[in-house]
Structure formats: C-alpha cells, structure tokens
C-alpha cells in the first residue's frame, strides 16, 4: 500500500450527467506532491478503494482534480458522488504513476474515449505547458463530453491538433487516418473502453508502430474464464491450499487468513504483485507485467493469474 493522507474537498462540479469533477487540496500546513502526467490517486470511497486519474499537468500542483463517472448505484463511484461536498475530507493514496510519457518522445498521439479523457487531459496539459507538440483524438457521446472545452483550449496551442468523434465507426476512421500520419519518433497513448483499446492496437500495428510506441491505460479488464483448479503453497507454511475453479489466488489467500495488498482485482493496477518461488506452470492474465517479466516468471498478479503447483512468498 502506498502512503495514505487526508485531503480536503474544495469543489464538486457536475461536468455532464453522471460525471463529477472533484477538487482536492491539502490540509493546512502540508504540500501536494508533483506527479508524472497520467498518474492516478487511489481514493477510499466508503468500503471501496478505487483509482482515479489526475487530470492536471502534475507540475507543482496546489490542488488535485479527478473526474468520476458514476457507474452503478452501490460501488465506489456512487459513494463519491453521494458523499463528497466542499469541506469533506477523504483518504487518498498516491499519486501512482503507471501511464507516464516516454521521456525522449518527439511527439505524442493521445487517444481518449469517454471517461478515458482524464489521463489524456493530464498528458495534453503537461505537453502544452512544456511547449511540446501533440495530437489528440477524443471520442465521446454527445451528451457526455466531459472536459471538451478545456481540451479545445489546450489544443489551440502551437503544435497541437484535435479530432473529435462521436461514433465508434468514426473513431476507427480517425485512428486509421491519424495513426498513419504522425512524425517519426512519436509515441501513442490511449485510454478508453476495451473495444477502443483493441482498435488502437490493431490499427497501430497495421500502420507499422512497434509495440514499444503504443501505451495503454486500462480502467477495466475483460471477463476471464474460470480456469482449472490447482495447488498453491505459501513458502514457510506446511499447509497445501487448493485454488478452485473460478476463484483467484488472491481470494484463496484471503480465505486462508493472509492479507495481500490489492485494489482493482482485475489485473490492471499492479498492487497485488507477489513473488513466485516455484511453479509447474504460470498463466499470466494481467496487464501490468511486461512480456519479459512474464517470461521470467519471478512474480505474479494474484488477482487474475493462475498456474499449476505454484509456491509463493508473502
């Protein structure tokens, strides 16, 4: 778990139906840490701990802003919508950087779909502040265009270009058109629904972008198949555990009384990484470890990944 701190809510603003921008400031006498563009905070929302991308440029911030889409009636996002008002205090962890810009990029292509605008806005603001060039594609539903005015303003900067699209078909068209027309040395970043991430990867590969130039931020992960039952052992413990079909290693460890840091429970946040001592085989199903790390087999994201005869060190 990263360092926790209390922050004060100074403003709650409705950006469009279901999306609220929350402004957080430090309590008296404390300062806020700067952050890499694309970083997120982990907010304690009732019994939930959820990640929310910081939308600012991260350069000496005096306040943090996040924008939260309300997804359902009893999750953490609904809690934030219901409970936060100016003057409230909230517990936050971070900032955590997992979607940072590549330091030597010559130019950035930033692609956002829906609420995925949040980290993209952060990247765009930081690039504008540093007088670098970027191109943005923003796909949204007309009644849910969060931050669009702010983005248009930023994209008036020299070296910027904005394409707005309001349908999935036009989004694919914009991706095909713009991904084949970026300068040499560009890096491309995307955050949005899963279908958009898939289009981005497919169209990027067809346009000749090597994998190391394509960067994805996932707010959610696809449903996984339940897998097979397998044996699990914790180093130093005599007891052999079984991980049943449809149950994760994380849940198995929790049921056995172990506490393991975690947050997203779907293989995107990187909090539940555990060292592997030995294994018959490993099936990595997360979006955190690199292909090299997966091949090396030294660790596992226990909320999603499986294997056979796995021994972990806690």
């Amino acid at each position: 778990m990263t360092d926790q701190r209390r922050l004060r809510v100074t403003e709650v603003r409705s950006l469009c139906p279901e999306i609220r921008q929350i402004t957080l400031e430090p309590l008296e006498g404390t300062a806020l840490m700067g952050f890499q563009p694309g970083s997120h905070l982990i907010l304690h929302a009732g019994e939930h701990r959820n990640a929310y991308s910081l939308t600012g440029d991260g350069i000496m911030p005096s306040r943090y802003t996040v924008s939260v889409l309300k997804r359902n009636d009893d999750g953490g996002s609904a809690w934030l919508h219901q409970h936060l008002a100016p003057g409230s205090e909230i517990t936050a962890e971070g900032p955590v950087s997992m979607f940072a810009p590549v330091h030597n990029q010559q130019h950035a292509l930033l692609v956002a779909g829906g609420i995925g605008i949040t980290p993209v806005l952060s990247h765009a603001s930081a690039l504008a502040a540093l007088q670098k060039s970027a191109e943005v594609i923003y796909a949204y539903k007309p009644h849910r265009a969060a931050h669009v005015d702010q983005l248009r303003e930023i994209c008036h900067s020299a070296g910027f270009r904005l394409t707005e699209v309001t349908s999935a078909g036009n989004c694919r068209k914009a991706l095909r058109d713009r991904m084949s027309d970026q300068p040499v040395g560009s890096h491309a970043y995307v955050c949005g629904p899963m279908s958009m991430l898939e289009s981005f990867l497919e169209i990027g590969a067809a346009a000749g972008w090597p994998e190391y130039r394509l960067h994805l931020e996932r707010f959610e992960a696809p449903e996984l198949d339940p897998g097979e039952e397998f044996a699990l052992r914790v180093s130093g413990s005599p007891e052999d555990l079984r991980v049943p079909v449809g149950v994760s290693i994380l849940e198995t460890l929790e049921s056995a009384g172990y506490s393991v840091p975690n947050m997203c429970r779907q293989g995107v946040c990187g909090q539940c990484q555990i060292s592997v001592r030995s294994a018959g085989s490993l099936e990595h199903r997360d979006y955190v470890l690199t292909e090299e790390e997966k091949a090396a087999g030294g660790s596992l994201m226990v909320c999603v990944s499986r294997g056979t005869d796995v021994e972990v060190a806690l």
């Binding site: 991904m179 040499v184 000749g208």
Partner: peptide, 10 residues
C-alpha cells in the same frame, strides 16, 4: 528525409 517520413517507417 526523416521529417517527410511518418511513424511506422523502417
């Protein structure tokens, strides 16, 4: 030449 080329070039 590289300024005329686009990302995706080899």
């Amino acid at each position: 030449k590289l300024a005329e080329a686009r990302c995706g070039v080899r």
